[in-house]
Design a protein around this nucleic acid. Sequence first.
RNA 1: GUGGCUGUAGCUCAAUGGUAGAGCACCGGACUGUGGCUCCGGGUGCUGUGGGUUCGAGUCCCAUCAGCCACCCCA
Length: 436
Amino acid sequence: MEPLRAVKGMNDLLPTEARAFARIEAAARRVFERHGYGEVRTPLVEEAALFSRSIGEETDVVGKEMYVFPDRHGVPLALRPEGTAGAVRAFIEHGAAAAPIVRWFYAGPMFRHERPQKGRYRQFHQIGVELLGAAAPEADAELIGAAAAFLAEIGISGTRLLVNSIGDDACRPAYVDKLRDFLHARAAELCPDCRRRAGTNPLRALDCKVAQDRVILGEAPVPGDSLCEPCRAHFATLLGHLRALGLSPIHEPHLVRGLDYYTRTTFEILAGGDLGSQNTVAAGGRYDKLVERLGGPAVPAVGFAAGIERLVLALGGAPAPAPGPDLFIAALGDAARRRALVLAQAARAASLRVEIDPRSGSLKSQMRWADRTSAAFVLVLGEDELAAGRAPLKQMGSRGGGAPGAQEDVALDAVAGEVRRRLAPGSDDRGQPGLS
RNA sequence: GUGGCUGUAGCUCAAUGGUAGAGCACCGGACUGUGGCUCCGGGUGCUGUGGGUUCGAGUCCCAUCAGCCACCCCA
């Protein structure tokens, strides 16, 4: 019979990789809580209408990538393709919109039915941050600063911050008309994708990757030239704030967003290295009309999301596995094996990481396993040791005070203390920052 | 959705159309109860699947599935 396989584009995270994810999420908690953001956990499943109303019916995310299925009453439900829509729904539903300012972050799986490729899967994981209730550029600056601090915290350096403004309801429609006219006028010279975009999503044409198109689009009108005065002032102030924060913003006039709900500020943070087209590690922008659009009050907001898979890629190299046990108990004979269980339980109660080999193997095979797991110390327990109440404690590697291979008899009822004492001064390698 | 590449042991990969192999890993022994280093022994396989060509297919052809990479889109 064919063995069952994971669904295409949905991956298992085995312990080492899961640990890398967990450390990134832990860093996110530290940094965002430091900025005053609280974690929210919203459902993975929402009514499909939530996403078509917020992200936009015509976007690829809603139009062809969303997992949609009817529930038992025929109501179309969807696996969430991104986090902002659900967060805003929760914000409205729980009356949080009554508070002047709400700072939320979230981390979890998102789903898009796309063709998988490097760093991009059908179930992927995002960390997102939303600051609701503030229209001023200080909010944009704080949020972008939080994003930069988060990337620095997990060890991604050499990033570039690209920012742009795509205007608001007052100035963007007229700009989009101008751009569409330009694209139609030059349609014959553009790639098929851009000819299509002229009708569906003109802004997306601006960051087309085809070389010839880039030349032509260099002559296209950019949003920055058509901003109304309030948008222009907002953007100018934001640039000043970002410079004051030392974030070296690069104004990228062609930077746009694919989702309909963005207004004014858009930004991306790019990682260095050769991640190719996957080098955007965080991206976001302002969405002043979304809350209203979803039935809430007129609350301006700004947010961003980062893809954890891409962060792991950007960090490069193999993630560090978990550290080995502090103590490994090798036991020979039934009585010793039972005593090993009891000793292990006691040592764990004293907060040590303790393992035994639950197979009944030779001492050699148990020692080999202890070595494999990178145990710091091994206690060798046999009939004689049980009788004497003392057993040899052997140091395996460099963790611990003595030389590798050194061993010394210790009292069985003092094992945990002996191990702890030897590991105590600065030799504990757990909790190191960094991932690789 | 479009295009390209690749499918052989747990992993990385060999094998001119002629008996499926190596390294690593794993298990055992040398060393009755002490890991790593060394040596000796052990192959753990529906060659992705289904057809076809052939005396004979891992190898050639077709189809299919899967994985990877890129495009579209996006974090």
